[in-house]
Design a binder for these strands. Sequence first.
DNA 1: CTCCGTTGCTACAATTATCGTAGCAACACG
DNA 2: CGTGTTGCTACGATAATTGTAGCAACGGAG
Lengths: 106, 106
Amino acid sequence: MARQAISGNVRGSRTGRPIMALLDLLGRRWALRVLWELRAAPLTSRALRTACDEASPTVLQARLSELREAGFVELGDGGGYGLTALGRELCETFMPLHRFAERWKR
Amino acid sequence: MARQAISGNVRGSRTGRPIMALLDLLGRRWALRVLWELRAAPLTSRALRTACDEASPTVLQARLSELREAGFVELGDGGGYGLTALGRELCETFMPLHRFAERWKR
DNA sequence: CTCCGTTGCTACAATTATCGTAGCAACACG
DNA sequence: CGTGTTGCTACGATAATTGTAGCAACGGAG
């Protein structure tokens, strides 16, 4: 009966399986949204906050730090957050969600 | 516990853009992971819990309820949670994440 | 120079979400 | 009957998020 499935750690562990780490990182609040809002062009921290419906700067900074550490987001020397090449690539992989969401509607 | 249903008032978006609602739903803890673990075959609630590294049943039940309400997951009449056709479709859209994560490695 | 507005970023308390453990009722099998 | 599943919930403890306020640093007028 034991459908022995993959038992990998998600939170706070790097036990291999990058997909788990990625799902964990993207599964934190505002993480997906931040990537989504940066998909077109870089935004300043405040513009990003506005784009994210005035989400609290505390979480946004936390997510930005994590996404930066992961190599998806970078802070331009002129100011403003933007996607790295890797981040743009990641964004592409879940861009089909847009089309899916439109059909989903509910 | 605040029940933020998909219908109507979803955190982060009252603009009516379905993508925001979807990003919000998938941005909750274990949501992506649950979909991921169900990608291959249905699992019982306990098998799913095992697959999700013994995540607390409280959240898992919450996520399962939300995902069921969204139409992505269903409870089979013989027991066990599985993806709906829509859920399978959703899973397909972010399956490329797997390949991306492998190249990412962190 | 000072004043003003912006930048990225942080402190702090209050509120939520999640965790971890335990346990329930319903059902099936022997 | 007892034993073992199933899906699901209660509840205190802990971690994450919210909302508000504010900081130092930088730049461009004036």
